[in-house]
């Protein structure tokens, strides 16, 4: 497996994976794998199915532990304490977001009502503005979430992640269900900001717009 290092200085290093080993039962996914991701970078992770893209996200989000090696966030090794801190500083958008039954507005409100998010709860105008930037109309808020198309759910999820105001975004195949126009809108919204975007993608259009490509 290839090992990647960043050309940027250590001081802006956000995540550092050092010589990790990870396996599911007998199947080895990572062996002596290292990677660094810097603040503000737009990274695309590519690879065939089963190459470890999802596992890499799970490791970085603290849902899995490496068997050997260590992962660092802002220079500190992962622990239960800083995993909880990390999850309050990032957002993660799954490829096919399912928020259960209910209308979009209620389901989004539920997230903004979390204790940690209460102070940053956006005004309705800001929500509508963000939806429009993603090529979505205000009416979508009153629609049943599960009746939306995959592309609409993906963009609603992205709007929620964006409105939470986090500086680090993990995006799982963010353009997989989008047309050219919507892709452009998504890119315009998040690629220009001072955001660190770590994405998995098979879409050459999206990969081309990232600063760095990591092939697993």
């Amino acid at each position: 497996m290839r090992t990647f290092s960043s050309e940027r200085s250590m001081s802006s290093q956000l995540f550092s994976i050092q010589n990790i080993h990870f396996r599911y039962d007998e199947e080895s996914v990572f062996q002596d794998f290292s990677l660094a991701i810097n603040q503000g970078e737009k990274v695309a992770i590519k690879g065939a199915s089963g190459s470890g893209k999802t596992t890499l996200f799970r490791l970085l989000l603290g849902f899995e532990h490496p068997e050997k090696g260590e992962i660092f966030y802002h220079g500190a090794p992962y622990s239960s304490k800083n995993i909880h801190k990390l999850r309050k500083e990032v957002t993660w958008l799954p490829q096919d977001l399912n928020l259960g039954s209910g209308n979009t507005s209620e389901l989004a409100d539920f997230i903004f009502e979390f204790h940690h998010n209460k102070e940053s709860k956006p005004q309705k105008t800001k929500i509508v503005e963000t939806l429009q930037k993603l090529n979505l109309s205000e009416e979508i808020l009153e629609s049943t979430f599960s009746n939306l198309s995959t592309g609409q759910r993906q963009r609603v999820g992205l709007a929620i992640c964006y409105l939470l105001g986090r500086k680090i975004m993990f995006l799982d195949e963010p353009t997989s269900a989008l047309d050219e126009r919507s892709k452009q809108k998504v890119s315009d919204l998040i690629m220009k900001e001072d955001l660190t975007v770590i994405s998995t993608s098979h879409d050459p259009w999206w990969v081309e717009r990232c600063d760095r490509v990591i092939e697993l």
Binding site: L61, F63, R87, K88, V90, T91, W92, L93, P94, L97, N98, L99, G100, I111, F114, H115, H116, N117, G157, I160, C161, L164, F170
Partner: peptide, 14 residues
Amino acid sequence: HQERYRFYLCCGAT
């Protein structure tokens, strides 16, 4: 629906 549960955690939920 683990993915949904984890999505909430990554949105800052306890």
